[in-house]
Structure formats: structure tokens, C-alpha cells
Design a protein around this nucleic acid. Structure first.
Lengths: 154, 154
DNA sequence: GTCTCTGCAAACCATTTGCAGAGTC
DNA sequence: GACTCTGCAAATGGTTTGCAGAGAC
């Protein structure tokens, strides 16, 4: 609850800085993402949850809002190669200590296994020094075969 | 040329192992990818290049072939978030020493900058030990602002 | 000859867009 | 009141699929 108020205030602040309006739809989308931290939600998932509180919202608005929140660095985008983009609350806003989490994707059963590791912080600093590219976020996926599929065959 | 023959032979071998047919289309798609090593090609790009040698090929065949080559681990898949999946010759087949290359994606101008680094080899071994997940490949993207965009403003 | 593969065209489906009315400030 | 924002429905566009004929073995 405490955290949620902080996130909402940050959203309002960023919107005002850019001369944009604070709307129920924008607050609700961000709130749903915060309440489902770590969930990898599609636009459709978010649409359905927000609809429970606000049945009139349109799917197009959810898409537009997610784009906006991503531009403002309030949400993270993940692509697990299943045909739709997924979203979660931005890593800068997450309450838990799980700063970096990556994904292991099984090529046989398509299972997605999260994996936590902070190794990339050093690499981010190195990149900034060498290239002048300012890193905000990263996405790391490993492809292979999960333990279950390895045991079954192949 | 030498390398190209090896790649073609490997394709034929893998196809035969699975009881699949060796066709001109399959050989041509893989050859185009090998001749454009490091290029991040879309299915459409590949279709147009293969069409020069084999005008009757259909786009659907290119898609089906890329899926097949990916299953056989002969090509790598990259998603640069521009709405289409990109392909390149598999890292196991690449002639150059550039084993791991990652991408820096600018959030403002959408420029993509390649960056070479082998740091992830250790992490792959670590993952296999801890989780039993057998890693074949990985995809790493960094999001942020490139030097040019940083200098201009923001 | 059998079975897979291919080209074509149509279908699919996540995402985007145009527009007129509603909401924010 | 001026401007942005929203919902709706239609459009978009990369990718997939059904099918009948062609090709590989």
C-alpha cells in the first residue's frame, strides 16, 4: 500500500512534467502491474484485470498506456517469443530485491524459468565507458533444454 | 567457399537424420544467411535475396525453412523489437571469432549497436550446474540512450 | 510409389490508427 | 475553453495454415 502510493505519485509527477493528463485508466494499468509484480503480463491480461474495476476501458487504451509507461521507464517489456509482448512493473519500482532476473526458455516444451543474477551490472558499466551508450535496462534470455526435457530424450 | 560447403553438408546430414528432404530452397536459405553473416536479416530480406537465384520461391517457404533451421540449431533468432524477427547464421557455424555479440538499442533513435563480449560463458556454465537447464544459446539486449542522443538533449 | 515439400491465397492475431465524443486542467 | 485522452471499429502487417500439385528418395 505504501509502495503503491509512491508509484502512483511518481506517475502523476512524470505526467505533469510532460504536460500530459492524469487519467483513471493510466493509474489503473500501472496499479495492476504493481499488484502483479513478477508476472509477465500481456496487454490482454492487463485489460481483463483493469476491466474488473473499470469495465469501460478499451484494449487500445491499454496498448497506448503501456507504450507511454514504457517511454517513462515505469514498466519493463519482455518478449518471450510466444507472439506477444509482456510487461511488468519497472525494475526501478519493484519492492523486492530481485533487481535482475533473466529467463531460461526451453526449446522443446516452451517452459519459461526465471533466474536471478546480478552479473550484468559490471558489464553495463563497462559498456558505458567503452561506447558512451547510457544503459537503462537489459533483457537476457537463454535458450536450451530444461532438465525434464533433457531426461526424457535427446 | 570451404566453409560454405561444410555448412551445406551439415544441413544435408541433419535433414537425413530426421528423414526430411534436401531441397534447393532449404540449401539456398541457409547459403544466403551464411553469405550475409552478422546481418540480422528478416524473412522478407532473405526471400528477396533467394528470389534472385530462385524466383519461384514463396515467402511461406522461407518462413517454414527458417523455423526448421532454427529447430536444427543452424540459424540464430534475434528480436530487435521493431516488429519482425531477424535471423543470422548460427553462432556454431560462424567463421569469425565473434562468438557472442549483443545489442545496444537506443530508445530515442532506435539505432542498434552491436557489442562483443564473452562474459556470459561463465554464467551459462553456472546456470547448468544450478538448474540442470542445458543452455544452447542466449540473447542479450541493452536498452538506453546512445551517445548521440545523450549529447543532443535529455 | 510414397511421403514430404512447396507456392498460392486466405486466414490469423497482436498491435496500431482514425475519428468523434468525453475527460482533464 | 483548449487540449489531450478514450472507446470503438476498422486497418495493418508479420507470420501461419489449408490445400492441391510438384519434388525427393
Amino acid at each position: 500500500m505504501e509502495q503503491q502510493r509512491k508509484t502512483e505519485d511518481l506517475l502523476k509527477q512524470r505526467l505533469k512534467e510532460k504536460g500530459l493528463k492524469v487519467t483513471h485508466q493510466r493509474i489503473l494499468v500501472l496499479t495492476v502491474l504493481e499488484q502483479n509484480s513478477g508476472m509477465h503480463m500481456t496487454a490482454e491480461d492487463i485489460y481483463e484485470l483493469v476491466s474488473q474495476d473499470y469495465p469501460d476501458i478499451g484494449l487500445a487504451t491499454v496498448y497506448r498506456t503501456l507504450q507511454l509507461l514504457w517511454d517513462m521507464q515505469l514498466v519493463d517489456r519482455i518478449n518471450l517469443d510466444d507472439g506477444c509482448v509482456r510487461y511488468e512493473i519497472g525494475h526501478l519500482l519493484r519492492g523486492d530485491a530481485q533487481h535482475n532476473h533473466h529467463h531460461l526458455i526451453c526449446r522443446k516444451c516452451n517452459k519459461v524459468i526465471p533466474f536471478t543474477d546480478d552479473l550484468l551490472d559490471d558489464l553495463e558499466h563497462h559498456i558505458e565507458e567503452v561506447t558512451g551508450f547510457h544503459v537503462l535496462d537489459h533483457e537476457l534470455k537463454f535458450y536450451g533444454f530444461c532438465r525434464d526435457c533433457m531426461e526424457k530424450e535427446n
